[in-house]
Design a protein around this nucleic acid. Sequence first.
DNA 1: GTGAAAGCGCTAACAA
DNA 2: TTGTTAGCGCTTTCAC
Lengths: 341, 341
Amino acid sequence: MAPTRATIHDVASAVGVSPATVSRALARPELVAAATVERVRLAATELGYSPSPQARWLHTGMSEAITLVLPDITNPFFLDLIRGAQHEAARAGYTQMLVDTEESTEQERTHLLAARKTSDGAVLAGPRLSDADLAELSQLYPIVSVNRRIRGVPSVLVDTPPALAAAVDHLAGLGHRRIAYLGGPESAWFSPRRWQAIKSAAIRHKIDCEHLGAHPPTLDGGQRAAPQIAAGRATAVIAYNDVQALGLLRGLSALGVGVPDQISVVGCDDVFGAELAYPSLTTVTGSAERAGELATQALIERIATGRLPRRQNRSVPAELTIRTSTGPAPRSVPHGRRQPR
Amino acid sequence: MAPTRATIHDVASAVGVSPATVSRALARPELVAAATVERVRLAATELGYSPSPQARWLHTGMSEAITLVLPDITNPFFLDLIRGAQHEAARAGYTQMLVDTEESTEQERTHLLAARKTSDGAVLAGPRLSDADLAELSQLYPIVSVNRRIRGVPSVLVDTPPALAAAVDHLAGLGHRRIAYLGGPESAWFSPRRWQAIKSAAIRHKIDCEHLGAHPPTLDGGQRAAPQIAAGRATAVIAYNDVQALGLLRGLSALGVGVPDQISVVGCDDVFGAELAYPSLTTVTGSAERAGELATQALIERIATGRLPRRQNRSVPAELTIRTSTGPAPRSVPHGRRQPR
DNA sequence: GTGAAAGCGCTAACAA
DNA sequence: TTGTTAGCGCTTTCAC
């Protein structure tokens, strides 16, 4: 499968040159006689030698690794993000570390501290730390944020708000006059922005729109909101994200509330499972993979040049995907639904 | 957020001792006077110092990092595996690298070669390399495999075969007399083993059982098998994994074949989405998270002790989860189904 | 209990 | 074009 660990000295003595020549032949062949380069290369492959990143780090200060920090790997949204990030990292010859902070600010802090020692920079997906902390960190260590804008920190956003406005258009077109937004957790930077987009669109359509408060971005979080929604007067709900929306679907089904007959549901992210769910989820589709690619690209540019990337804030387009969880508003408003307790 | 890179010398001169003392105070405090240890610790936190893994690697040869190699991060089965692995890694103070080989044997080989330089060992989920390659690699570099047994390589299996036998019992109990197995890809070590378990159980029940050949373990792979299945005579299908099964559900629905009325479908893994699908998927549930934990634990034991772990082959129990994609066999055998083309 | 010194694998001045 | 040398941050003998 592969030979053992050879050092630069092994190659040097095999070829009969000094270690320095080996180093140069491999890293900067233009400085070395073509014939020598050839012999060194041969011997290196022969012995299975390649320079150790750790030893190299001593000089260059570069580990050629980046860290991807995720709040919750359980959310399939991050699957595509991870893959996109890995593509870019591999393309640039970087190794990728992965860290799941489990929605904990403290874990995020700890892992970031550790990352500074082991990698040259980090992509932070939906970071939880304060703007101030992140801006400060960004001065000391190259970071790029995904789905959160912070002054002084390059970022990539999946541009969901316009698509959410389109979702409101869609619902209004179906005759809904009263919609609700199931908010994400307090720490989710994007949640109030999604709410804004929804509210503005609702105002434009002159329809009612209420905010149902903060809920965990989990299946359970969505499911637990079902009774409140069933008891409420809205005929359509837009959830902060798909995982929540899917949980809500489950919760409503358990309560015997028909979707979309009695209530329409819209999600956000178009995760694995959204299309397969019953009813299939109307949602906002944007490429998390592309976001991962762009973020990693920006990060590597930042690492390589030592300055902020030229395009500091990028975004990835998103659009509404209409499936079967949305339908015409029920004729008579709340019928057969539970009363608030 | 955090101070800059301090070296051991900074701490040494801050405290007024030699770098050697700092090193000892932090790594082997029992060799140093308690008072000194205290002062060193204080200064270290003060300066935000912690020893660099890279520099330490020069001596110890250890990077305190492990690599998790996955064939396809797109499969949600791996979400839980990643999380379990990360828990154990973090607990033991290891950093986790992540690599997605995209089902390519060559990428697996390349990444593994790279991993040897950057990490102390690797967990390989469903590796594609040959037994010989893996056994040889295992001599040179600590690896642990998940869901594949190879002589000389410690492994962790999610023990799905008994649960698949239970699935056959379940189907037989529902009156199915003719079932089929939708195979995974050729490279999937587990596929023939699952088939074996199913076949034996079918024989025990004296029911027919056919193998539908190899199919990609993707939504698309499952969906494309739908026509063949709709045209066949089996009244129940067990798929190699859930992703395939969910694709199959989608394909059958597109063909207008009712599940479970006309055909029952069983998956394997109980991934995110299996429960939410329509109909909700009867499947085999085992803890991928636990498998990730055990594998990482075994790997770290192997790294730390330098020998194979005591329990070389471990397994995680799995059980049948009955949902609504399975139901009584249709009365009159294939009715209303398409003919083979 | 602590310090001095050597060396891990590699790169980058500087010489030759 | 190539070799010599020093040194990156840390650990570990070996003295003291």
